[in-house]
Design a protein around this nucleic acid. Structure first.
Lengths: 202, 202
DNA sequence: TGTACATCAGTGAACGCGCGTTCACTGATGTAC
DNA sequence: TGTACATCAGTGAACGCGCGTTCACTGATGTAC
């Protein structure tokens, strides 16, 4: 992007900051309530702005959704990196599984994994939006593959895919359940299972 | 329910048939597009009815959603029973996994597993609707537990829960992907992984 | 059997509301000279 | 430095549309006698 400075009355940083505030708030809200559960006007109001100004920043709601999805992946990756930072190379995967299937993650949809939060509805979005998921998935999987057991790189990547998709499924069933005891049971069973399958623990 | 025949001009069967047609169509549409993606008027029109009559059968959309969810579970259970009917006791789980993670199931959201199709949005529904999920899950899990490896009944039930939630997650990630090759890879990786984990196959 | 009457599943116009989007306007900031 | 002018992020009223729900009405079917 080239900014022709002589035409700019406000410094670009000002507009960019607002835009980023919108994207961040959207990233949380969309994960909490889904795309259709978030109204532009409410979102802008939350930021002490009015809905009209929204269209200075985005072509429409779908563009915001797409950017919020990218931002969500960025955040989720950072969270997971933070959770595994202190672990030994061999313990990274265990830390990851425990963090992903924790009650904290389960209760905190808005700041958690976008695959889990938006899995179902992504299939209803534009192809361009869905390819954002594909890209993020491939990147993330490639980064984690080295820590997963498996004979070939391809096999390791496939196992990471299954680990992620599987854990997202467990998280979603836990979240959908109305019974708190059943929810805890599901999470615990998920941790036990995936730790055993991927870290060789009984 | 007691029908006071002398007050009935139409036989109860007539109204019941219409109601069931609505529930069945809804069960498919809701799974295909989600609750907010289905309009009452469209649904009724599909059945050559008009939207006004809808309220002779249901209090509102949420009641229909709940009934459609129950119907979806019934159908899904029947499908899975059919898929495993021919298998030996030891092969039931393998047949189940292959059917659940088949490309056919992946492409056929409307007639497939409601947990996979509606996982994300169930968390946004009333508690009464969500407890429908809990009940169906418990029933289904209890029925399958005998076929799953594990030392105690409790352990077996927990493993079935994880198997289901995990497969639903894999199916959803496959469905969300825009790239057909990646989709097939995910399904295949899922089958390989869950077969190995639950049926002891390499 | 035939006629008057009652019921109620289904009809379709209308209502109300939420929400995405548009648009004329404002006013703070920056440039030109 | 001061003044006139231009830009554009943000404002808030208004528009249009989809959709859930309501309601007065219809007409096919059944009962009463």
């Amino acid at each position: 992007m080239i900014y022709i400075i002589s035409q700019m009355r406000y410094p670009p940083a000002h507009k960019d900051r607002t835009r980023q505030r919108i994207v961040r708030a959207a990233a949380r809200r969309f994960r909490e309530r889904g795309s259709e559960g978030v109204a532009i006007a409410d979102l802008m109001h939350e930021l002490r702005l009015t809905h009209g100004g929204f269209y200075r920043h985005f072509k429409g709601k779908e563009e915001l959704f797409n950017e919020a999805l990218v931002e969500s992946f960025r955040q989720a990756e950072a969270t997971m990196n933070a959770a595994t930072a202190g672990a030994s190379p061999g313990g990274k995967l265990e830390a990851l599984i425990r963090t992903y299937l924790s009650e904290g993650h389960c209760d905190n949809r808005g700041e958690g994994c976008p695959v889990a939060a938006l899995a179902t509805e992504l299939a209803h979005h534009r192809k361009s939006t869905r390819s954002t998921l594909g890209r993020a998935l491939r990147d993330y999987v490639a980064g984690l593959a080295p820590f997963v057991p498996g004979d070939t790189p391809t096999e390791r990547e496939r196992r990471v895919l299954v680990l992620f998709a599987g854990m997202a499924g467990v998280l979603n069933v836990a979240r959908a359940t109305s019974d708190a005891a059943l929810r805890r049971t599901i999470l615990e069973a998920g941790r036990t299972f995936f730790l055993q399958a991927f870290c060789g623990r009984a």
